[in-house]
């Protein structure tokens, strides 16, 4: 079956899942920042300032999340390519683990 190979979620599904999460984080974090700024403004009465500050913070958060996610994926890919070929031989033929993609 496509979804479960040898009683494990297949690699394609895990990869698909990881990739599909990245874009959303950027957008949603920006909007959360925007909403927090907007309601803080209403609460504190500092009309444009909180909105601007928190919008910027939201954008920063979005980019940081994407960066962290990419680092996590990179680490996963490294472990995977190091795994099957053994720890000693990753310099000469580190490729084989990732060939299928």
């Amino acid at each position: 079956m496509f979804f479960f190979k040898r009683d494990k979620p297949s690699e394609a599904m895990v990869l698909f899942g990881n990739v599909a999460t990245i874009g959303m984080q950027l957008v949603v974090a920006t909007f959360i920042g925007l909403a927090m700024g907007y309601y803080l403004d209403e609460w504190l009465g500092t009309k444009p300032w909180m909105l601007i500050i928190f919008l910027l913070l939201g954008i920063i958060t979005g980019f940081r999340d994407v960066y962290r996610e990419a680092m996590r994926l990179q680490r996963g890919a490294d472990e995977q390519s190091a795994g099957p070929s053994g720890p000693g031989s990753d310099g000469a033929k580190g490729g084989p683990g990732r060939q299928g993609k």
Partner: peptide, 18 residues
């Protein structure tokens, strides 16, 4: 603290919308 709060609040929203 602020960045992480935004990041954590974004999680349920992104789960929902996706």
């Amino acid at each position: 603290l602020i960045l992480e709060t935004v990041s954590h609040l974004a999680r349920p929203l992104s789960l929902t919308l996706r």
